[in-house]
Design a binder for these strands. Structure first.
Lengths: 213, 213
DNA sequence: GTTCGTATGTTCAACCTTGAACACTCAGTC
DNA sequence: GACTGAGTGTTCAAGGTTGAACATACGAAC
């Protein structure tokens, strides 16, 4: 894929919850129902994490957690840079018939600063306009009637996205949503799986000799 | 992917143009711009064809075309069955954020009978309604506000698709589009790459000892 | 006549995805 | 106290995708 969704989700999950192990990431992504639409089996997670280690974008520590060895991961400076790049690419790139990369990136919007996120969505708005022009009816392309009709669905989808994007940019500008470095207004429900992440995070931080934050 | 887009496109291309070689398929799919949105590099085509041979869904003949050996493929009865199944699955299955499988299948609509195609799209209409219900606002799912907002784009997309599908079923019922076994009303332009396919097809048929149709 | 580009036809190693399965713990229950 | 099922944490072989690169022919331009 033009947009590396799996890598982006993994890097994002590590950035949000580090220090974190593979299973925690899996649990969290499943709770977001991401496994229903992205390529996210257990193999993709553990394999992807190994790749990210090789690329120097995350580091792996094998910590001893009450007698058992667990692999926990932290993101590196290089990983943060790559994550920002991937999120920007995912937010800006309009891919034909396929919005998986965008939805994955949009789901991690809180990792970005408000102005950065807004700028990415403004670029996307522009890209959507370009796509609308490029696929305009009668713009050359000889094709059988059913194929021409199929393009109409794609165009209708794009027009809806344009409306939604314009609205979303407005909401961001007016301070809606909780972005990076801003106080968290949304309160997760009591049974939120994020609670478990926090508990495990504390333990792993302690085992790594970090100050528990 | 839940829908095996590459396999479906390959089987469909073989069904439409047999006897055909890998490069012809590539040329044709590129002319449909399929390579821009499906996974369709040369490797996927030749690799995919080998897999289909192993599965007994196409047969490979190494014919001698003026001194050079060319691999040409024909679909088998089993392949036709599988193609019908894949097209039905592609037309009926609503996948989150991703309409690649549907658009690939819709592009090959002329391989199906009018009543079969219509029934598949009616099933899809029903599936879209179910998805609309399942993702209805406030249906349980606790999630951060930006994620809830993201779902709104998906819902808007689905509503547009519903409208388009209802329209499309109507058009099919009223005899629009040229489907399997019906006289071909659309005439390709003079520079259509399909012409070349016809020429090569004749030659390969002759080399295989088939009656040129 | 040689260089250049383009079209034809295909291969392959590196990489990624899939999902079944392993190995273990812990709580409940018959 | 043995069995069952669910949760935790990970591995791996089989299969699919990527895209650069190979090999060859053919026409055009210098």
């Amino acid at each position: 894929m033009a947009v590396h969704t799996t890598r982006m989700l993994l890097l994002g999950a590590v950035a949000m919850f580090e220090p974190v192990n593979g299973y925690q990431i899996r649990r969290e992504l499943v709770s977001w129902r991401v496994d229903e639409w992205a390529n996210l089996g257990p193999g993709s997670i553990y394999g992807g994490l190994s790749t990210l280690v090789k690329l120097g974008q995350v580091v792996r520590h094998d910590v001893d957690d009450e007698g058992r060895t667990v692999a926990v991961y932290e993101i590196t400076q290089s990983g943060r840079g790559e994550l920002a790049r991937l999120l920007g690419e995912g937010l800006e790139t309009v891919t034909l018939f396929n919005a998986v990369g965008f939805h994955a990136a949009f789901g991690m919007l809180p990792l970005l600063d408000r102005d950065v996120a807004t700028r990415h969505l403004e670029v996307r708005l522009h890209e959507v306009d370009r796509a609308l022009e490029a696929w305009d009816p009668g713009s050359g392309h000889e094709a059988p009637p059913h194929a021409v009709h199929g393009v109409r669905l794609w165009l209708a989808t794009l027009r809806e996205e344009r409306v939604w994007l314009a609205d979303t940019v407005g909401r961001l500008r007016s301070g809606e949503f909780d972005l990076a470095g801003e106080p968290w207004r949304w309160v997760p429900p009591a049974d939120d799986p994020g609670r478990q992440m926090a508990v495990d995070g504390e333990r792993y931080r302690a085992l790594l000799g970090r100050e528990p934050s």
